[in-house]
């Protein structure tokens, strides 16, 4: 089968998903009432008047987690081709993969020791 034949169903399903994603908000816009006014435009903060803008700076630990995720996720993605071909690669492939994983684990230990994974 050609690539087009394989991926056309995915494209069609993507179209279907966009159809549903557009249909639901449009339907509720049509069916629901539209009565602006009152305090509907304010941010919800459990009845307390909101002070200032909410889009402020966030704690840096969230960014550290995101960066670590990208590093480790790319490492894991490299294991997928190995998982498919491992029986053909045999013992040589196993040693190569183990060296790769050891580097991965050393990175993890280093990150751990530096206290990046600590949440207080």
């Amino acid at each position: 089968m050609t690539i087009a034949q394989l991926y056309i169903p995915v494209a069609v399903l993507f179209g279907i998903s966009i159809f549903f994603a557009l249909l639901l908000p449009i339907l509720s816009k049509i069916l629901g009432p539209n009565r602006p006014g009152g305090r509907k435009g304010e941010a919800y903060e459990s009845g307390i008047v909101a002070v200032g803008n909410a889009q402020k700076r966030l704690p840096v630990k969230f960014y550290r987690i995101a960066i670590l995720f990208i590093l480790f996720d790319i490492d894991i993605i490299f294991l997928f081709p190995y998982a498919i071909a491992m029986k053909k690669l045999g013992l040589f492939g196993l040693w190569s993969m183990l060296i790769f994983v050891v580097i991965f684990v050393l990175g993890d230990i280093w990150v751990w020791k530096r206290g990046v994974l600590e949440w207080e």
Binding site: S28, G32, P36, K40, G41, E42
Partner: peptide, 18 residues
């Protein structure tokens, strides 16, 4: 859910909110 009012607050980032 369909018959409730669909109103965005004023301070939202309209495009991303939608």
């Amino acid at each position: 859910l369909f018959f409730k009012e669909d109103r965005a607050p004023d301070m939202v980032d309209t495009v991303i909110y939608n």
